[in-house]
Amino acid sequence: MKDTKKIKKILSSQQFIAGISLVVLYIYFSISSPAFRSTSTITSIFDAAYYIGFLAIGVTFVIATGGIDLSLGTGMITSAIIGGLLYQNYGMPVWVSMIVTLLVGILLGALNGFLVAKLKIAPFIATLGTQMLMLGLGSIVSKVQTVNFPLRSSPDGYYKSLFRTNNNFPTGIFIFLGLALIFYIILNKTKTGRYILSIGSNEDATRLSGIDVVKWKWRAYIISGFFIGLAGIAYASTYTSITPGLGTGIETNAIAAAIIGGTSMTGGIASLLGTVIGVFIMGVLQTGLPFIGLQPHYQIFITGIVIIVAVYIDVFKRRNDTH
C-alpha cells in the first residue's frame, strides 16, 4: 500500500510531468523535422540552457521564500558590461573583469534582499525597480556603447574555455549541472534550505519559532545574485560583444523554468531537479521552434501558456491538499 501511494505521488508530481513533457517535446520536434535529430541540435540546446540555467537555480531559492526577482536579465547584462569595461577601457586583467562581474551580481542580490527582507518592500516592486536601475546603469557606464570581451583566439580569451571548447561544445552545461547538484543538496539537506522553505511556507510561524527571517530571506536573494554574476560571466564567454539595453525578458525564461519544474509561486515548495528539467524544456523550445517554421518569438507566447498551466497545476494541487 505504501509503495502504491509512493508511486502515485511520483507520477502526479510536477517534476515527473515536466520530465515527460521534455521527452514529448523532443520527440515531437524530431518527428516534425529530421534535421532536428542531429548532434549539432543537442549542442544548441545545451548552448541555450546553461546561462539561463544559472539564473534559474538562483531564482528557485528566491521563489521558495514566496518572492520573485525580476532583475535577473538586466542584472546579468549589466554585470558583464561593468566587468567588460574594466578590461576594455582600463586594461585590467580578464580575471579581474570576471571577479568584478561576479561581485556586481552578488551586490545586486544583496540590494534586492535588503529592499525585500529589511525594508519590507514587496518583491515584485523592489526587483522591478532594480531591474530598471540595472538597465539604466548599463547604458550610463558604457555610454550606450558596445562592450567587447577578448576573442577566443587572443591570449586573454582563455576564460572562454570554461564554458566552451575550441570546437564550440558548450562545456558550461556541465558547470550548470554540477552547481545544480550542489545547490540541490543545500536546498534539501542543510539549514539554509530548510529555513528558506519554511519562510515560504509560513513566514509568521517561522519568525515565531525564533528563526531570523530577515537574515535567511536576504540570503536567498544573495544566492540569486551570485548566479546573476555567474550568468554574466557565462554570457560574456558566449557573446564576445555585449550591447547595453539587453537583458529585459531573459528573466522570464529562468522564472518559467523554475515554475515548470514544480517550484511554487506562493513559496514553501521548490525543486532544483524540476528546475533543471524546466531549463532543458526552455532550451528545446528555443532550439526546436525554428525547425518547424516558427520564429523564436513564438517561444514567448508558448512560454506564457506553459507558465499559466504550471501555476494552475500548483494551485489545483494545493487546493486538493487542503481538502
Score class of each variant (00 low, 15 high):
residue 266 T to P: 04
residue 187 L to S: 06
residue 204 D to R: 15
residue 31 I to W: 12
residue 73 G to L: 09
residue 141 V to A: 03
residue 190 T to H: 12
residue 103 L to G: 12
residue 72 L to D: 00
residue 105 G to R: 04
residue 260 I to V: 09
residue 284 V to Y: 09
residue 262 G to T: 01
residue 172 G to E: 08
residue 172 G to P: 06
residue 29 F to R: 11
residue 9 K to M: 04
residue 243 T to L: 04
residue 160 K to V: 14
residue 61 F to V: 06
residue 218 W to T: 05
residue 65 T to E: 06
residue 202 N to P: 12
residue 234 A to N: 01
residue 156 D to I: 05
residue 72 L to H: 05
residue 155 P to H: 09
residue 40 S to E: 06
residue 218 W to L: 10
residue 94 V to S: 06
residue 153 S to P: 01
residue 317 K to W: 12
residue 74 T to N: 06
residue 236 A to M: 11
residue 45 I to D: 06
residue 286 Q to I: 05
residue 231 A to M: 07
residue 99 I to M: 12
residue 288 G to K: 13
residue 95 W to F: 15
residue 156 D to H: 01
residue 249 G to T: 05
residue 122 A to K: 14
residue 191 K to M: 13
residue 248 T to V: 09
residue 15 Q to C: 01
residue 303 T to Y: 10
residue 184 Y to W: 14
residue 132 M to V: 14
residue 58 G to V: 06
residue 129 G to S: 02
residue 49 A to S: 15
residue 141 V to D: 08
residue 234 A to E: 02
residue 53 G to S: 13
residue 289 L to E: 03
residue 256 A to R: 00
residue 44 S to Y: 14
residue 99 I to F: 12
residue 136 G to S: 13
residue 287 T to D: 00
residue 163 F to Y: 14
residue 186 I to N: 05
residue 140 I to T: 06
residue 45 I to Q: 09
residue 128 L to T: 00
residue 50 Y to L: 14
residue 221 Y to M: 04
residue 237 S to H: 00
residue 175 I to Q: 00
residue 120 K to C: 11
residue 113 G to I: 06
residue 42 I to E: 03
residue 306 V to C: 12
residue 121 I to Q: 02
residue 197 L to D: 05
residue 46 F to V: 07
residue 119 L to C: 06
residue 241 S to W: 00
residue 192 T to R: 00
residue 30 S to V: 08
residue 203 E to K: 14
residue 136 G to T: 08
residue 49 A to E: 08
residue 226 F to D: 00
residue 219 R to V: 09
residue 35 A to Y: 12
residue 256 A to M: 05
